[in-house]
């Protein structure tokens, strides 16, 4: 199939997808674009925001707009790994013999909403590691592959510290993007009230199948990156390391660990998705700049001084991006 024809169809599909999501989600344009980009880049997304901003609603709307299986796990402190990945149960065959049978957990889906993921213990949170990275679950000695496309959309509340367990760095690194939900504007809030307090329920129709999504993902990966653009991304990621002499003073002072190579991959992938949004065959510097914050903010580990002074990783990333020349 001709790539251009495919892309032309993909554009229409993505337009329809945005339109369907827009039926229920008011505003949050960057959040919606980020989630779609993450979907195209075959990654997982961590949504952070105070309660009531529509994070869960966004994920449910996305699942409604896609012909994909959807499951939701409400993370609680007493949630066990087996509650996520499944467990072996004793079953009886026709002859009455008993045997162990694997009972799949809710992770065996295509869109998984891990709501308030930071309320579960690290042990339970880590149960998602293999599923997110390798798209399979191992129980006992048997591995169980997950159905493609598979995407985890986790939410967490940044202000409730009591009874929460911050995600470990390894877990955080598995998320392609970390998106933050902001408060809606006055106009958006008014529209939200009109839509949700009326008698009619908004109906979201599925517009994208799993196969179509896979085709879009394939095209996303075919977006090319010029050498000088790639060099820019590499310099940006390396500049998050405090030991790098080219790192800004803020990074050298407040950062303990910078972004991993997985951060560079995330940056490029999301930038490619953003390029696809604009019908471009190539990644631009603007795409990288737009992808830098959501792709790197959760991969920068502040030191004690940075934590004590309340340094925001977003400020560090902005300083890095501003300090790297785009030409020469």
């Amino acid at each position: 199939m001709n790539d251009q024809v495919t892309l032309s169809g993909a554009r229409e599909q993505l337009t329809r997808l945005r339109a369907e999501i827009g039926k229920r989600i008011v505003g949050h344009q960057a959040l919606v674009d980020g989630v779609i980009a993450c979907l195209l880049a075959s990654g997982h997304v961590l949504l952070e925001g105070v309660p009531g901003l529509g994070k869960t609603m966004l994920v449910k709307t996305l699942s409604d707009a896609l012909h994909l299986e959807f499951a939701r796990i409400q993370f609680t402190p007493d949630l066990m790994p087996a509650d996520i990945i499944g467990t072996q149960i004793v079953a009886h065959d026709e002859q009455g013999n008993r045997y162990f049978q694997f009972q799949p957990g809710p992770v065996f889906t295509q869109l998984l909403l891990a709501d308030e993921i930071n309320r579960a213990t690290p042990k339970t949170q880590s149960a998602l590691l293999e599923a997110m990275e390798e798209k399979k679950v191992t129980v006992g000695r048997t591995g169980h592959p997950l159905e493609e496309p598979f995407m985890v959309l986790a939410t967490q509340n940044p202000i409730e510290m009591e009874g929460t367990y911050p995600l470990p760095e390894a877990q955080l690194d598995r998320f392609l993007l970390k998106l933050t939900a902001d408060y809606p504007s006055e106009q958006e809030l008014s529209t939200i009230i009109d839509r949700t307090t009326g008698g009619e329920e908004v109906q979201v129709d599925p517009v994208l199948s799993g196969a179509e999504l896979e085709a879009l993902r394939s095209r996303t990966r075919s977006v090319v990156v010029a050498r000088h653009v790639k060099d820019y991304a590499v310099r940006a990621v390396l500049a998050t390391h405090p030991g790098n002499p080219d790192a800004p003073p803020l990074v050298q002072r407040y950062v303990r660990h910078g972004a991993s190579p997985r951060g560079a991959l995330s940056l490029i992938l999301v930038a490619k998705a953003f390029a696809l949004f604009e019908d471009r065959l190539n990644v631009s510097f603007d795409d990288l700049k737009a992808a830098a914050l959501p792709a790197l903010r959760h991969r920068i580990l502040l030191n004690f001084e940075g934590e004590a002074e309340g340094i925001e990783p977003d400020a560090l990333i902005s300083a890095i991006i501003d300090g790297i020349p785009v030409a020469g």
Binding site: V224, V225, A226, H228, V229, E278, R280, L281, N282, A327
Partner: peptide, 24 residues
């Protein structure tokens, strides 16, 4: 020429279309 294309991209706001095309 590649450097020229990069500079032209920036000057004309072509989002690196010209330089990427020239490079490939």
């Amino acid at each position: 020429r590649l450097q020229v294309a990069i500079l032209a991209d920036l000057e004309l706001r072509l989002k690196q279309r010209l330089s990427t095309a020239w490079e490939f």
